[in-house]
Amino acid sequence: MTYLVDIEAFHGPLDLLLFLIEKNELNIYDIPIAFITDQYLQYLQATGEFDLENMGEFLVMATYLLNLKSRLLLPRTEPNRSEDEEEEIDPREELVQKLLDYKRFKEAGEHLQQREQGLIERIYYREVSDEPNRREELVVDLSALIRAYRTVIRRLPSFEPEEIIPEGDVNVQDKMNEIINTLHKNKGKITFFDLFKTVSRRREALAMFLALLELIRLQKVRAYQNTPWGNIHLEMW
């Protein structure tokens, strides 16, 4: 075989397998594994240069197919097997499931493309912006922060049991450090609500909120939304 197959034309091993199944008009629920494995390997061999970066996934599938093929060659039923166990799981089941799953989303992707092009009846939104990238960020104003804070507070118990004497006031400076540490742990980004997830008391929530405001004022942290009324994201400057 002299021609080269452009393996990159296939979006992964499942795509190539699906193509081979359709090309040979095979029944996806009853794939002749030996046949398809040979076909698959021929395609890989015809690829010319091996680019490991892109080929790795194709090779993993090749190994899987070869393994499957050998399992199918082994005698299927052992003589001592009782009747109940007769209904053995087809070793191809997993592969079939994977292929069906993949096919489903491949088709869903095609459907999206048709919608986008207006080939399927659809609604249109008003074209609001001239900008090529509408992902401009909105700097969060104080009222949005307060609204989010109120939401947090509502989830917390409204009073603290009296027997618990606060072990000194919650320190805002400590909370500032805590926020910075949390941000570091989360690659410099966290949502407002995730930040408050660990908070269980109102006093603590207040200290956390004040600490956050201070950090924003000091321009150590910035708060933004991707959409008006969207989630508030916090990020290190």
């Binding site: 092009q117 207006g118 009846e121 659809r122 609604i123 249109y124 008003r126």
Partner: peptide
């Protein structure tokens, strides 16, 4: 949400 009616998607595909 205010948006266009579905019936006009053919025409709008050309206008988009």
């Amino acid at each position: 949400l205010m948006c266009t009616k579905k019936e006009y998607s053919d025409i709008l595909a050309r206008a988009a």
